[in-house]
Every structure is written in C-alpha cells, then in structure tokens.
Simulated scan of single mutants.
Amino acid sequence: MPPTTLFPGVAVVTGAGGVGIGAHVALAFATEGCSRIAITDLNADLLQQTKAKIQATAPQVEVLCESGDITNSQFVSTFMKRVVDKFNRIDYAVNCAGILGQDERSHEMDISSFDAVNNVNYRGCWMSSRAELQEMLKQEPLPGLTPSRPAQRGAIVNIASQLGIVSRPKAAAYCASKSAVIGMTRADAIDYSKDNIRINCVCPGVIRTAMTTGTDEVTERLAPAVRIAPMDRMGLPEEVADAVLFLCSPKASFVQGHAMVVDGGYIIN
C-alpha cells in the first residue's frame, strides 16, 4: 500500500523563525502531512511563532522547537542528536538560515562583516548538513513511494540563491557564500549517492520576507533585481517552500545535485 503522505518521516528545518522561507517550509511540511517536525532558529520568539502556526494549522503534528546559533558547531550537533533522541531519525533536512550583509564593495568591507556572512550562509549550512548526514547514515531507508521507486535514506535541501549563479554589484561576500553552498551541495550529492541520500539546493530570487522588506534601505537596494526578473515581482516564500518539498519528496527520486532556481526568471534576463 502506498503511504498516505509523501512525507511519512521526520523533517528538520533550520532558520525556521518568523515569516521567512524556513518558517514557510516548516509549515508546508505540516500541511502536506509530515507529522514530526524539528525546527531551530537564532531568535527564540520568532521560532515560537512558527511552532504556534504549525500547531494551529495541524494540531496533530509533533514539533521539537529549540533556539540556537547554527554557527556554533556544538549547538548544531547537539540539536541534531536531540531530534534523533525524540523522533529516532531525520528524513528531510532543509537548511534555510542566511543573512544579506551590507551593500558594499570588497575594499569597503571589513573582515568581521565578511566572516559574519560566510559563517551563517556557508559554514553554518555546511555544519548543519554535516550533522544531518551523520545521523542519516545511521538509519535504514524509508520505503519508496511505490514499489518502482527506490528507498531513500534521507534528503537534504540547502537554500542557496540566484546570486550563487549570477552576481550583482556590492555583494561579493554574499554571492560567494551562496556559490559555495551550490558547490558544496553538488560535491555532497556525488559522495552520498551510494548511501541513498539525495542532496539538492534551491536558489531563490528576491522573496518577500522580513529580510528583504525589513527596511526601506534594503527594499530600495533589491528593487533593481525585482525589475530585472521577467515576472517583475517579489516571489512568495510559499513558492520556494513548494520547490523545497518537491526536492525532499520521493517524486524527485532521480533528482540529485541540482540547483533549482526559483527567481521569476531573473537569471535568464
């Protein structure tokens, strides 16, 4: 008998606080039938907001909620172990934490600002993915969606950016950090294919979140990118979440090492 949901396993979402991409990914898992979800974010209050939305939408869902800093390797390892202690496994992992940084050329950027961007966007993503892989390798695969689909030991989706593929002025550190996420995703996809673990990334364009609309300065900074995209609008975090869930699902059973662009056509224009 086929499963009643595409997501019978356990989902982990980092950077899940507030109204950003991570929060919408976590909510989408709950809406699509995943009944065990673990979320983390640096901001404890925003994380509780996400938990409340999940439980209001899907009261049957068990939520493990723990705030912490994904640039701290000890927290990352401890959090993943707690997920496994509670739920016994990790099947779908989505690494969403990210920051923009200031709008400045490289000679204007100080090293501490460069490190801040890369510590979250690349190093934090790598540490999260590394800890998830360590746990996934210990577990038996989930059965396939149908007898014709292979079993899947785990699926990881890292959130990169359209600016990991093309660059824009005054964002060298950000562009490089997201390019690194794409390169890491592809290399890990090669390494862990033999373990029945799929690893992909999503490259969002300008998405309407608190990070992109929080101040007039940021909104003005991103306006040219919105105008460049043929669809001429900001994307919605729900639209990114849809792409993420597809890549986690057994419907993407032959998709590996892919950087899926969700940007309204930005990079083709």
Rank of each mutant, 00 (worst) to 15 (best):
A252L: 09
D242F: 01
M234P: 01
M260C: 11
V255F: 06
V255Q: 04
R227K: 10
V226D: 02
D263S: 11
R233A: 08
A241Q: 04
H258G: 08
E238F: 03
H258L: 12
Q256A: 13
I228T: 15
V262Y: 02
Q256T: 13
D232N: 15
D232G: 11
A243Y: 00
V262N: 02
P237M: 06
A243S: 03
E238P: 00
E238W: 05
H258K: 12
K251N: 13
R233G: 10
V240T: 08
P237W: 04
E239Q: 06
A252Y: 03
L236Q: 06
A259R: 01
L236F: 06
R233V: 06
A259H: 05
L245N: 00
E238N: 04
S249R: 07
A225W: 10
V261H: 02
A229P: 04
D263E: 11
R227A: 10
Q256G: 09
M260E: 09
V244L: 13
M231N: 13
A241H: 01
K251R: 14
E238H: 04
D263A: 12
A241M: 12
Q256P: 08
L245W: 00
G235C: 06
K251T: 13
P224T: 08
P230E: 07
V244P: 04
M260D: 03
L236W: 02
V240Q: 08
A259C: 14
G257K: 01
C248W: 05
V255M: 06
D242E: 11
E238M: 06
A259W: 04
R227W: 15
G264R: 00
F254K: 14
A259T: 09
P224G: 15
M231Y: 08
D263I: 02
V244F: 15
V262K: 02
L247Q: 09
E239F: 00
H258Q: 13
V255R: 00
L236E: 11
M231G: 13
V226T: 13
F246Q: 07
M260N: 07
G235E: 00
A241L: 11
C248S: 10
A241D: 07
S249C: 07
P224A: 15
